[in-house]
Simulated assay, not measured.
Amino acid sequence: MGRHTEMDKDAAARIQSVADRDPQSDTAQSGFDTRAQSAADRHADEQDEEDDGEACAAAFAPGANAAAGPGAAG
Results as ranks from 00 to 15, higher is better:
10 D>Y: 06
52 D>N: 08
20 D>H: 11
43 H>T: 14
42 R>F: 09
24 Q>I: 00
26 D>G: 14
11 A>G: 14
14 R>N: 12
39 A>L: 08
34 T>S: 05
48 D>A: 15
69 G>D: 03
12 A>G: 11
42 R>N: 05
46 E>S: 05
21 R>P: 01
2 G>C: 06
1 M>P: 00
58 A>H: 09
16 Q>P: 03
15 I>V: 12
10 D>K: 15
42 R>Q: 03
44 A>T: 06
69 G>R: 09
60 F>E: 04
24 Q>P: 00
8 D>F: 00
63 G>Y: 02
36 A>M: 04
31 G>P: 02
65 N>H: 06
42 R>W: 01
7 M>Y: 12
63 G>F: 03
53 G>E: 13
50 E>Y: 07
41 D>I: 07
70 P>R: 13
1 M>N: 05
54 E>K: 14
31 G>K: 12
64 A>S: 12
38 S>P: 00
70 P>F: 07
13 A>I: 01
33 D>P: 03
45 D>R: 09
68 A>C: 13
68 A>L: 13
1 M>R: 11
12 A>V: 02
65 N>K: 08
73 A>E: 13
2 G>H: 07
45 D>E: 13
6 E>C: 06
17 S>E: 10
54 E>I: 09
62 P>A: 10
7 M>D: 07
43 H>K: 10
40 A>K: 06
50 E>W: 03
34 T>E: 11
46 E>G: 04
39 A>H: 04
35 R>M: 11
11 A>F: 05
18 V>M: 08
34 T>C: 03
51 D>Y: 11
33 D>Y: 01
33 D>H: 10
